[in-house]
């Protein structure tokens, strides 16, 4: 058997929902762990207490600037992981921690929570709250192919991951916004003359903040939690023909890998 990749789960200020989602691959989780990836770090699942070297770090949660341990751990993660994945809305965009403003006992000074891209370079984003088991699985498989696959597989993995890397590049670039919100549909799709009224955004939203009114999204901003799912799901945010046109083959590949 080919060598496995090593994967870690790094828990910042998140709710563990992202990790639960990974575990929600059910039988597939065993498949991944038997054949493709060893979990070398995950406080919730294993006894390793300090961040080790690893191929892929799945980081969940945003970073509290007033918690030294968190800041140290995210820096250490960047040093020790070849690929850093922002797993879920909190790590990628801040999500609900964007609303934090401190004032709560026993640590009222903890008021600043930032997406991990504000402190380190991030390679891949998986938006959403929670990110889905299938999206996490796909990223794991592609990361495996990227690191251990044939040239052809590497090419596919690169093409597949590119849009998620572009989201990460944008999020990690201080000059461009790393904010996420239903408003992205306004700014980057409708205001740009690109919306075609498919309704993907409304389906994607995990808090039912989007309804379709006369074929266009209406965003209830007082419900939005800033997870980034709607925009990333929109076919007019990114659409890579070279990958999506091959949906039949790629679906077969993924099914095959998981069998």
């Amino acid at each position: 058997m080919v060598e496995k990749i090593t994967v870690g789960h790094v828990h910042m200020s998140g709710c563990t929902g992202c990790l639960v989602s990974f575990v929600d691959n059910y039988e597939g989780l065993f498949k991944i762990l038997d054949n493709y990836a060893d979990i070398v770090y995950a406080l919730t699942l294993a006894d390793v207490r300090h961040v080790p070297e690893m191929d892929v770090a799945l980081v969940e949660g945003s970073v509290c600037l007033q918690d030294k341990a968190s800041v140290e751990e995210i820096k250490e993660t960047r040093e020790k992981a070849k690929v850093v994945v922002a797993l879920g809305g909190c790590a990628a965009y801040g999500n609900i921690t964007r609303f934090c403003r401190g004032g709560q006992w026993n640590q009222p000074q903890m008021e600043s929570f930032v997406p991990i891209g504000d402190l380190i370079d991030v390679d891949v984003y998986i938006p959403g709250c929670a990110p889905t088991p299938q999206q996490i699985r796909n990223v794991c498989i592609m990361a495996y192919l990227l690191l251990k696959g044939t040239d052809e597989q590497k090419e596919l993995a690169t093409a597949y991951l590119k849009p998620l890397m572009d989201l990460a590049a944008r999020g990690s670039d201080a000059k461009r916004s790393s904010d996420a919100c239903g408003c992205d549909l306004m700014y980057d799709v409708i205001n740009q003359g690109l919306c075609m009224g498919c309704g993907s955004c409304a389906a994607a939203c995990p808090v039912r903040a989007i309804s379709m009114e006369y074929g266009k999204p209406q965003i209830e901003r007082d419900l939005c939690i800033k997870c980034g799912a709607c925009y990333a799901q929109c076919p007019r945010s990114f659409f890579n023909f070279d990958v999506i046109n091959e949906f039949e083959g790629i679906t077969e590949l993924i099914t095959g890998v998981m069998e």
Binding site: P133, Q134, A229, A232, Q233, I244, F247
Partner: peptide
């Protein structure tokens, strides 16, 4: 296109 993107990149489309 939206269907296929949802299948390959199921970002907000669990299960």
């Amino acid at each position: 296109q939206a269907v296929r993107k949802a299948q390959l990149y199921p970002i907000g489309m669990r299960d």
